[in-house]
Amino acid sequence: MAKKIALSWSGGKDSCMALKKLVDANHQVVSLITTVPKELERTFAHGEKTEMIQRQSNSLSIPLHFIRCSFDDYTESFIQDLIQLKNQHHLDSVAFGDIYLEGHREWGENVAAAAGLEALFPLWCQQQDSLSLLSSFIQSGHKAAVIRIREDSLDDSWLGKELDDDFFNNIQKQTVCPLGENGEYHTFVYDGPLFQSPVSFTRGQVLSEGASKRLEIHPLV
């Protein structure tokens, strides 16, 4: 039976893969959910400008809901907004793009239960299957670029790299999860079969942020 689903959306490859799985299963994704610090117009997940996430939403033709919160009330705000979305869209479920980290799954299941929703994890697999999942994303025809790296895992040369066959081959030479599930790298998806048109952007400066570095991306008019 088709379900009405809200999808936790970071703007990266995992969110995109989760969306594709849900669409292929004939479910109706009625809302994308992105958390944003109250004082900033950038996402909690990867630090993108909210405008870039909105442009993804527009191209995907799926409404976007920003959960504006702080670190202190993150979970409480997530639950409250889920309840609002549940009532607004008659949701059955909330989906997450987590892959194999049990702590992340537990959090997702807990917030879903608190909102009276089913928690879905379309990508859930064993850690050893992560390379196969990366291959599936590359072969899907979607396009993504690396916009953030953890400095203790990858060097600056990875910023801006496209997720393609070369990336697939080279990431296996690194001592990291091929999918970056432990935060080794993050991506921005900007085109592919799910998109009506590319989300065009230019690459800007590299910014240091604690233990990570982020490639600033700017929307093209």
Rank of each mutant, 00 (worst) to 15 (best):
M1F: 12
A2F: 15
K4T: 04
I5C: 04
S8Y: 11
G12F: 00
D14L: 06
D14H: 02
S15I: 12
C16D: 11
A18L: 09
L19M: 07
L19N: 07
K20C: 11
K21M: 01
N26W: 12
N26Y: 11
Q28I: 08
Q28H: 15
I33R: 08
T34I: 04
T35Y: 14
T35E: 13
V36D: 07
P37N: 06
K38E: 15
K38T: 12
E41N: 15
F44M: 08
H46L: 01
G47D: 03
R55T: 14
Q56I: 09
N58P: 03
N58Q: 13
L60C: 12
S61P: 05
I62D: 09
I62S: 11
I62K: 06
I62M: 03
F66G: 05
R68E: 09
C69F: 06
S70L: 09
F71V: 08
D72H: 06
T75K: 15
S77C: 12
S77L: 10
I83L: 09
K86M: 02
K86G: 03
K86V: 03
N87A: 01
Q88D: 11
H90D: 15
H90L: 14
S93C: 10
S93H: 13
V94W: 02
I99F: 01
Y100E: 06
G103K: 02
G103S: 12
N110D: 15
A112T: 12
A113T: 13
A115E: 08
W124T: 02
Q128G: 05
D129F: 05
D129E: 12
S130L: 02
S130H: 00
S130N: 14
L131P: 04
S132L: 10
L133N: 02
S136V: 08
S136H: 09
I138L: 01
A144R: 01
V146Y: 10
V146C: 08
R150S: 10
R150W: 01
R150C: 13
R150I: 02
E151V: 13
D152R: 11
D156K: 11
S157F: 05
G160H: 13
G160K: 07
G160N: 13
K161R: 15
L163V: 02
D164Q: 04
F167M: 06
F167H: 02
F168W: 05
N170C: 10
Q172P: 03
K173E: 14
C177Y: 00
L179S: 13
G180D: 00
G180E: 08
N182T: 06
N182S: 09
G183D: 00
E184F: 00
H186D: 13
F188H: 07
V189P: 06
G192Y: 00
G192K: 00
L194G: 01
S197N: 08
P198C: 10
V199W: 02
F201A: 00
F201W: 01
T202A: 11
G204A: 01
L207W: 00
A211F: 07
S212R: 14
K213V: 03
R214N: 07
L215N: 02
E216T: 10
E216C: 09
V221W: 09
V221T: 10
